[in-house]
Nucleic acid binder design. Structure first.
Length: 503
RNA sequence: GCCCCCAUCGUCUAGUCUGGUCUAGGACACAGGCCUUUCAAGCCUGGUACAUGGGUUCAAAUCCCGUUGGGGGCACCA
């Protein structure tokens, strides 16, 4: 953690991630967080985590914990925030209510805001009427016209911003330039709700100002409501931060990524067996590219920090490609040391109920044998489970058709199985290296292609047509299990041949 | 409905700001091939894109305008 910035460090940039604990952080928001974090780390600036828990109705109790866990898992650290504090705290908005209230009252005193006690039903009616006329639904300003004091501070009410009825409001976006809105289409935004909590607009402006945030980088779904906040900054007489609206991340259907798109929360990606470094790399490249003819796709965190450039963020939204993420994750897996991969794999085997944790010492050699076998075959860590489950649990003897080799009879297959049984039973060293050549020799002796023989054995021993390399698999399985499964296969073939003869 | 943003292969993108070097490059995915005990991995090859109409210019993917398309927003939600 770097020391929280002092006011004197005017040169230092400060950005923030300000999630609302109404759900788990999803991958689209996190992509924007990645941009913020990369920028902060590159500029040696501050990265602030602030919790915007001003919606009491949608509050999810464990969301804060999951948000923190997700960030930590992805290797995104923050310099100030809940738990660790900082010079600008508290960093949880529900602990700052007095500030927002005071700021809202200030605006009433200066004539920039007013109290409104219109009931919800009336507001809905007003909006509906405007909608029916094809106009933008918004508040009609009834309470705005009332004399000061008409709505008592003691009765239930909200505080609204007085938006100029005419003219335009323009702000500068670092990526898009000037964006202009007509004031007559901007609603008299509620700043303070009747429950005493601020709305997003008030809280974010007050906090970004007080916390000296220099760059407000967020999704471009916030563009249409930005003028409301620009007006707020002006009402307070505060300097504007630099606005950077980054494009949204879309689901495969082209719509804003959300709960309906299946696995979207960071937590789900973790559970599915994605590596944090791979996900981070992928996310950094979603809507941003180093350019300059660069064709590299895999970047270390350090490289990304070094090369990230806000100005190179794309303007159009990007569809989240699970295919490319899978490829990248597989790539990272292949780059990993076997020892490291083993450590990553253990929790997944354990979750599947295939092994217990802590891993029993006698189980470790088996796992170590399995790692190189699966390493280049899996795209996610969880893929290893299906690829190796037969090593840990008993298999069903496969249907007899699977035990008969290509272009072979049942009898020939039976002979082959018996020869393999003999071979496996008499091997001095039960290792992949020791069995490969004898097995190849055996195939030749039997007049079979290696593939024919190995196919039969693969089915007999793994119960599958597709498996990791056969000899490594057999070694991992061990002599006892191998012989047992070969015996079962032999019995199945014998039964099949007898049945054929009777018919 | 109104407002705002955006527009290069199916997808992520390079190239657009500083027009010519772009018969548009890379990656993922897909197809074929090689390798091979299956599946992968790896290597090789292939197809697919400047939304559209008008300008400006000797020259436009690149600049301007319209159209179309896509997305987002219009709450006492963030």
């Amino acid at each position: 953690m770097i020391q929280a910035s002092q006011k004197g460090r005017a040169m230092s940039i400060r950005v923030r991630f300000a999630p609302s604990p109404t759900g788990y952080p999803h991958i689209g928001n996190i992509r924007t967080v990645v941009f913020n974090w990369l920028f902060a780390r590159q500029q040696n600036g501050g990265f602030v985590l602030r919790i915007e828990d001003t919606d009491r109705e949608r509050y999810v109790s464990d969301a804060l914990r999951v948000i923190e866990d997700s960030l930590e898992w992805l290797g995104i650290d923050w310099d100030e925030g809940p738990g660790i504090g900082g010079d600008y705290g508290p960093y949880v908005q529900s602990q700052r209510l007095a500030i927002y209230k005071q700021k809202a009252e200030e605006l009433i005193d200066t004539g920039k805001a007013y109290r409104c006690n219109c009931p919800t039903e009336r507001l809905e009616q007003v909006r509906e009427a405007l909608r029916a006329k094809g106009k933008t639904p918004m508040y009609d300003g009834r309470c705005r016209e009332k004399p000061m004091g008409a709505v008592s501070p003691d009765e239930p009410h909200v505080i609204r911003l007085k938006v100029p009825p005419e003219g335009t409001t323009t702000f500068h976006d670092m990526l898009r330039g000037e964006i202009t809105f007509e004031n007559r289409l901007i609603d008299d935004q509620i700043l303070l709700k009747s429950d005493g909590f601020p709305t997003y607009h008030l809280a974010v402006v007050v906090d970004d100002h007080m916390m000296e945030i220099t760059h407000v980088m967020r999704g471009d779904d916030w563009i249409p409501s930005t003028p409301k906040r620009i007006l707020l900054y002006r009402a307070f007489g505060w300097e504007l931060p630099i606005f950077v609206h980054v494009p949204l991340v879309l689901g495969p259907d082209g719509k804003k990524l959300g709960k309906r798109h299946g696995a979207t929360s960071v937590d789900e990606f973790r559970r599915q067996g994605y590596l944090p470094d791979a996900l981070f790399n992928f996310l950094a490249l979603l809507g941003w590219a180093p350019g300059e003819g660069e064709e590299q796709e895999v970047f270390s965190r350090e490289e990304l920090i070094e090369r990230f450039d806000i100005r190179r963020i794309n303007l159009s939204s990007a569809i989240f490609s699970y295919d490319k993420l899978d490829w990248m994750n597989g790539y990272y897996i292949r780059q990993m040391s076997e020892q490291k991969l083993l450590q990553h794999l253990i929790p997944f085997w354990a979750d599947a109920g295939l092994i217990s944790t802590p891993v029993p010492t006698e189980m470790l050699p088996t796992l170590r044998l399995l790692v190189p076998l699966v390493q280049e075959r899996i795209k996610t860590l969880r893929d290893a489970v299906k690829l190796t489950d037969f090593v840990f649990v008993d298999i069903e003897t496969p249907p007899v058709e699977e035990l008969i080799g290509k272009k072979m009879t049942a009898k020939e297959s039976l002979t082959a199985i018996r020869e393999v049984q003999h071979l496996m039973g008499t091997l001095v060293q039960f290792t992949a290296e020791a069995m490969e050549q004898p097995m190849r020799d055996l195939a030749e002796t039997l007049g079979l292609k290696a593939g024919q023989l190995f196919g039969i054995v693969r089915n007999a021993v793994t119960g599958k047509r597709v498996s990791p390399p056969l000899f490594g698999t057999i070694q991992a399985l061990g002599r006892e299990q191998t012989l047992k499964r070969l015996e079962n296969a032999e019995k199945a073939l014998v039964a099949h041949i007898e049945a054929q003869q009777k018919a």
